[in-house]
Simulated assay, not measured.
Amino acid sequence: MHRSLTGAPAAAVHHGGDLRGAAQRFGIPRERWLDLSTGINPCPYPVTMPPPDVWQRLPDDDDGLAEIAARHFAAESALPLAGSQAAIRTLPFLLPPGRVAIADLTYGEYAPAFARAGHAVRRFHYRSAPLPPPDAAAPLPFPLDGEDPASLPPDIDYLVVVNPNNPTTHRIPVATLLHWRTALAARGGLLIVDEAFIDATPEASVASACGAPGLLVLRSIGKFFGLAGIRAGFALGPRALLEHLRLELGAWSVGGPARHAVRQALEDAAWHAATRARLSVDSRALRQQLARHGLAARVAPLFAWAPHPDAAGWHARLAGQGIWTRLFDAPATSAGGLPSLRFGLPADGAAAARLDAALRAAART
């Protein structure tokens, strides 16, 4: 087990949702903002209150939640987590030091977590046109610095893939991911697939292969279910690896009220089906709305991503009207060398109308 912690503390990674900072910066009271800066479902699962004793007793780690999750995700085994963030921060220290490939534009916690644990981080990029194509549902090729999509560089020990990628929405086919798992397992490596946004398209998941060596999948309850505040998620993978992670995280990693909420959410198949249908419609409507105002966007079921030369200007003009988006201001190869914006889904017709008016005004400026 690798446990080297050296150097100065790393800077905090920026995420969406910082409404307090937005309110201070733009002088608009917090309650007047429309927050579209995250990819969290704006219509969350309707959790009921837990029984009173859940608030008083310690969480029961053997309450069957792991088994419920394994069945729901079609995985061999599951480990409940205090959000997938717990695994992202801990896992790199459980792996022998090596070389890890991480996309140049993806969820920002992975690279610093692996670097802190002493791994060498290598960046790859998603091949994409400067302005995304209109058919945002189709997967695009995934080169590692130009290699064939089905191959891996021989010097890579670990590969992190967020699928679909946040924020670029790129998706990697199941067959390609399984090919990479086989190649990495043969060299004693690991493929880590973050499926935080996969729930709306479960057929694209590799969770069913998680019993095989060389594969770890992370799933979130915060995105599709809209329950980010309870901080719950799961690791899916070989039992031995999950046991190492469990021992490192310790007991009671997920609180009793959160376990109650997650059990309800995972077992409500009717809500899953209705939500998938709604998200498909809403995400396509958001893409069309952005296109009408000059922002070509790709969509995942929970957000839209728009590279644009003036992404920072759009971000500021919308913020001046109380619309908070997520700005990725560093040009990235995966974004065609451009900065970009991410838009979460409006919760209802009123929110969509407010966004439309703000986009119209921003386009005129």
Rank of each mutant, 00 (worst) to 15 (best):
P97N: 15
P97E: 14
A117H: 14
A136I: 03
Q85K: 05
G83P: 09
F114V: 02
S77K: 02
G108S: 08
A137T: 03
G64T: 12
A111E: 11
P134Q: 12
D104W: 04
E109L: 15
R71N: 02
P132W: 12
V100H: 05
T106Y: 03
F124D: 08
R99P: 02
F114Q: 10
E109Q: 15
P97R: 15
H119L: 09
A87H: 14
G83M: 07
A69I: 11
P133S: 14
G108M: 01
E109C: 09
A69M: 07
A136G: 14
A137N: 01
L91H: 00
G83W: 05
A70G: 00
R127E: 06
A136K: 03
F124M: 09
P112D: 08
E76D: 05
D135Y: 12
G118K: 13
R122S: 10
A101R: 00
R89S: 09
P130I: 07
V100T: 12
F114W: 10
T90L: 13
D135V: 13
P92W: 00
T90A: 14
A115D: 15
F93I: 05
A101N: 02
P96E: 14
Y126S: 10
R99I: 01
G64D: 13
E76I: 01
S128W: 08
L65W: 06
G83A: 13
F124G: 06
P130S: 06
Y110I: 04
S77N: 07
A66N: 10
D104I: 07
S77L: 02
D104K: 08
A113V: 07
P132E: 10
R122Y: 06
R127F: 07
Y110P: 05
H125G: 06
T106M: 09
P133I: 13
A136E: 08
A137Y: 00
A101W: 01
L95Y: 05
F93Y: 13
G64N: 13
A111F: 09
S77P: 02
P96T: 09
G64W: 14
L131C: 03
P96K: 14
P130F: 04
Y126Q: 13
G83L: 06
E67C: 13
V121L: 08
A113M: 02
R89K: 08
D104R: 01
L94F: 05
L131A: 11
A111T: 07
P80N: 04
R99D: 01
L65V: 01
T90F: 08
P112C: 09
I68V: 15
R122I: 12
A137D: 03
R99K: 08
A103G: 04
A103E: 10
A103L: 04
D104M: 09
R116Q: 15
R122W: 09
E67L: 14
R71W: 00
L131I: 09
E109A: 15
S77C: 04
P133W: 11
D104H: 04
A69Y: 10
L131V: 05
A103W: 00
L105H: 14
A136C: 08
A137M: 01
R116H: 07
A101Q: 02
A113T: 01
A74N: 12
Y107H: 13
A137W: 05
L95T: 05
T106W: 06
A78G: 07
E109I: 11
F124P: 03
R116L: 13
L91W: 02
A113P: 08
Y110A: 05
